[in-house]
Design a protein around this nucleic acid. Structure first.
Length: 222
DNA sequence: AAACACTACAACCGCAGTCGA
DNA sequence: TTCGACTGCGGTTGTAGTGTT
C-alpha cells in the first residue's frame, strides 16, 4: 500500500495508523456517525469525511466480524444476490424503499457484522471471475486429474464431490458450481419464483430467510 | 529457495441521491 | 425552485500475504 500514503490537496490518503483509528473512534463516539465532514474537521485528522466514514464503516465500527465468510453467510450472499444482484427489486419494494436501496448494503443487513465492502469484495473474488481465475481452475483440474489417476490406481473410492467440505474454496467442483450459479442466474423480471433457488444451497435456509425478509426487516409498515 | 500466480482486503474515485439554505 | 454541500454506494485499484511451481 505504499503508493497511497501521499498527501494530495492537503488530505492524507492511504492506510490508517492506529493513532488515527483511535482519534476517529473517539470523535465518532463524541459526535456520532453521520456527520462525517464535521467529524473529519473536528478530529484534527487530516482526512476527508469520506475517508473517515469508510474507515469507520468498514473497520472500526463496533460489532464487526472479522475473518472468513462462513458457508452459511456465503449461501445468504448468493441467495440475496440472486434476488437483487441485477438490480431487480420487486415493484412493491421499489416504491417503499426509496428506490435506491443498494444491493451490497442490503445484503450486508442480513449478515450482522459484515460490511457491504466486505461482501462486495467477497463476491468479486469468489464469483465474478472473468478470465484469469479460470487459469487457476484449469491448473486445479489438471492436478485433480492427476490425483484421480493416482487414486484410481489405488482403487480410488473417493466420496462424491458434493460431499466435500463446503468451506474449502479450493474444492474444484465447488468453484465450478459457483461459476455455474452466477452464469445461470435467471433474470426473472419483477417476479420471485421458487425456481430461482434451484442450484442454490438449502431450501430450509430460504424459508427462514424469507420469513425474516418479509416478516421482519421488510415489514415497512412499522 | 526463488519466482510466479493468486487471493483477500483496505482504500480511493466518481457518480447519484438527499437535504437544507 | 435552484444550487451547493454532504453522504452513501458501486466500481476499481494497489498491495500484503499465501500458495504453487
Amino acid at each position: 500500500m505504499s503508493g497511497r500514503g501521499v498527501s494530495e490537496q492537503c488530505w492524507t490518503k492511504g492506510p490508517w495508523t492506529p493513532e488515527e483509528d483511535k482519534l476517529l473512534t473517539l470523535c465518532v463516539s463524541q459526535y456520532g456517525d453521520g456527520r462525517w465532514n464535521f467529524v473529519a474537521r473536528s478530529s484534527g485528522l487530516n482526512r476527508n469525511g469520506k475517508s473517515c466514514r469508510l474507515r469507520w464503516v468498514n473497520y472500526l465500527r463496533p460489532g464487526l466480524k472479522r475473518g472468513h465468510i462462513t458457508p452459511q453467510e456465503e449461501g445468504i450472499i448468493i441467495e440475496l444476490h440472486a434476488l437483487w444482484g441485477t438490480s431487480i427489486v420487486p415493484p412493491s419494494l421499489s416504491l417503499s424503499l426509496s428506490l435506491s436501496l443498494s444491493v451490497w448494503s442490503t445484503i450486508a443487513r442480513y449478515l450482522p457484522g459484515r460490511t457491504d465492502n466486505e461482501i462486495k469484495n467477497y463476491w468479486r473474488t469468489h464469483f465474478k471471475k472473468p478470465g484469469k481465475p479460470f487459469q487457476k481452475q484449469e491448473k486445479k483440474e489438471k492436478l485433480s486429474q492427476k490425483q484421480h489417476i493416482l487414486e484410481e490406481g489405488n482403487g480410488g473410492n473417493k466420496d462424491s464431490p458434493m460431499q466435500a467440505d463446503p468451506t474449502c474454496d479450493d474444492n474444484i467442483s465447488d468453484s465450478q458450481s459457483k461459476q455455474e450459479t452466477v452464469i445461470t442466474y435467471p433474470t426473472v423480471d419483477n417476479q420471485f419464483l421458487p425456481i430461482m433457488y434451484q442450484d442454490i444451497t438449502s431450501c430450509s435456509d430460504i424459508i427462514v430467510l424469507d420469513d425474516y425478509l418479509w416478516g421482519g426487516l421488510w415489514n415497512l409498515d412499522i
